[in-house]
C-alpha cells in the first residue's frame, strides 16, 4: 500500500520543478549582483584607472581585453563545475555538433557577449551608467517576446504582471539617478541610446537563442559551449581586428592586466560569480522558461545595490526600499502561479 496518493505525488513533483527553477533564477540574481563588486573594483586598478574618461577608443580596447580574459577564467570555473558533475564528455559531444546544435550557443554568446556588453558600454560611455542599468532591466521583455513568437513559450497574465512589477521596481531603484545624467545637448548621446537598445536586445535574445540548443542538450554543458564560443569571438576575431586595424596597444593592455595582481584577484572573483550566475541562469530556463528566468534574474539590480552597500557601507537612497518592495512583490506574483501551469512551458502540438 502506497504512503502517498498519486495526485499528491504529481503535485509535489511539479512544485519541486517550479521551486528549483525559481531557486536557480534567484541564484542568478544574487551572483549577478555580487559580480558588480569585483567587476567595478577592477576599473579602479591599473591599467584601467589611468585611462582618461574621454579616451573612448582606449576604454573600449581595455574592455575588450578585460572581457576576453574574463571569459577565459569563467570557462576554467565551468570546466571545474562540469568535471565535478561528470559532464565533460557530454560537453565534447555537444560542441562538436556545430552545424545543427552548438551553433545556437555560438549565436547566444554573440548576443550576450559582444552585442550586449559592447552595447551596455556604449550606453555607459555616451549617456551614463544609470541609463545603462535601466535599459538592461528591459531585457526580460525582449527575451519573453522572442520566446513567445519563436517557439510559443507560454507567458501567462500572472507571469507578465510579475515581470512588469519587477521591471518597475528596478526603474524606481535606478530611475532617480537619471536626472542630471541625461544631457540632451550631448551630440553623441544617440550612440548611448543605440547601445542601451543593443544591451536589452542582446541579453534578451541570448536566453531565447540558447534555449533553441538547450532543447536537446544539457544546460550545464550548454553554458560551457557558450563561453567557449565567446572566447573565440574575442580572441580570434575582435582583439586581432583591433590589433591589426588600429594603433591601440592591445598587447600592452593584455600584459598589464595579466601581471597586475589586484586585477587578477578581482578577475577571479568576478569570474566565479559570473560562471555560476550564468550556470544558474541557463538551468532556470529549462524549468520555468526564458521569460520567467530572465525576469527573476532581473532582481540583480536589487542585489547589486545590497552588495555595494555591504562593501562600501554607504546606505542607498530611501527609494531603494520602494523598489525592493516592488521587485519582491513581482517575484511572488510570478511564483504563486500554479506549478501545474508551468509543467509544460510551451503551447505545442502533441
Amino acid at each position: 500500500m502506497s504512503s502517498i496518493s498519486l495526485d499528491k505525488a504529481l503535485h509535489n513533483h511539479f512544485q519541486r520543478s517550479q521551486r528549483w527553477g525559481f531557486t536557480w533564477a534567484l541564484w542568478t540574481a544574487v551572483l549577478w549582483g555580487a559580480w558588480y563588486v569585483p567587476g567595478t573594483a577592477m576599473w579602479y586598478e591599473e591599467p584601467f584607472v589611468s585611462i582618461n574618461n574621454g579616451d573612448h577608443g582606449m576604454r573600449l580596447a581595455a574592455t575588450a581585453v578585460m572581457t576576453w580574459i574574463h571569459a577565459v577564467v569563467v570557462l576554467l570555473f565551468l570546466v571545474i563545475w562540469n568535471g565535478m558533475l561528470g559532464k565533460l564528455k557530454d560537453y565534447g559531444r555537444t560542441i562538436m555538433r556545430f552545424r545543427r546544435i552548438s551553433k545556437w550557443y555560438a549565436l547566444a554568446s554573440l548576443c550576450g557577449g559582444p552585442m550586449a556588453i559592447f552595447g551596455s558600454y556604449m550606453a555607459m560611455g555616451y549617456v551614463g551608467p544609470v541609463f545603462a542599468a535601466i535599459t538592461s532591466l528591459f531585457y526580460p521583455v525582449v527575451g519573453a517576446l522572442i520566446a513567445r513568437l519563436w517557439y510559443h513559450e507560454k507567458i501567462s497574465g500572472r507571469a507578465a504582471l510579475g515581470m512588469a512589477i519587477i521591471i518597475m521596481g528596478g526603474v524606481v531603484i535606478y530611475g532617480p539617478g537619471l536626472f542630471g545624467e541625461i544631457d540632451i545637448s550631448e551630440n553623441y548621446a544617440w550612440l548611448g541610446y543605440v547601445g542601451g537598445i543593443m544591451s536589452a536586445i542582446g541579453w534578451g535574445a541570448e536566453g531565447a537563442v540558447a534555449s533553441r540548443a538547450m532543447d536537446v542538450t544539457d544546460p550545464d554543458v550548454g553554458i560551457q559551449c557558450r563561453f567557449s564560443f565567446e572566447i573565440l569571438f574575442w580572441g580570434v576575431l575582435v582583439l586581432p581586428m583591433i590589433f591589426l586595424l588600429t594603433d591601440l596597444p592591445i598587447v600592452t593592455l593584455l600584459v598589464d592586466m595579466l601581471t597586475s595582481q589586484m586585477v587578477m584577484i578581482w578577475m577571479v572573483l568576478a569570474s566565479i560569480c559570473h560562471a555560476y550566475c550564468y550556470t544558474a541562469f541557463y538551468k532556470s530556463f529549462s524549468l520555468i522558461g526564458v521569460g520567467r528566468g530572465e525576469a527573476i534574474g532581473n532582481l540583480y539590480g536589487v542585489f547589486a545595490v545590497i552588495f555595494v552597500m555591504v562593501f562600501t557601507l554607504d546606505l542607498p537612497e530611501w527609494y531603494f526600499v520602494v523598489g525592493l518592495i516592488l521587485t519582491v512583490t513581482g517575484s511572488f506574483v510570478m511564483f504563486r502561479e500554479p506549478a501545474e501551469n508551468i509543467s509544460t512551458l510551451r503551447e505545442v502540438e502533441t
Binding site: 534555449s211 532543447d215 509543467s343
Partner: peptide, 13 residues
C-alpha cells in the same frame, strides 16, 4: 531531470 526538461520544453509528452 533531463526528461523533466524535455517535457517542460514540450519535446516529449
Amino acid at each position: 531531470i533531463a526528461l523533466d526538461e524535455l517535457a517542460s520544453a514540450g519535446l516529449i509528452t
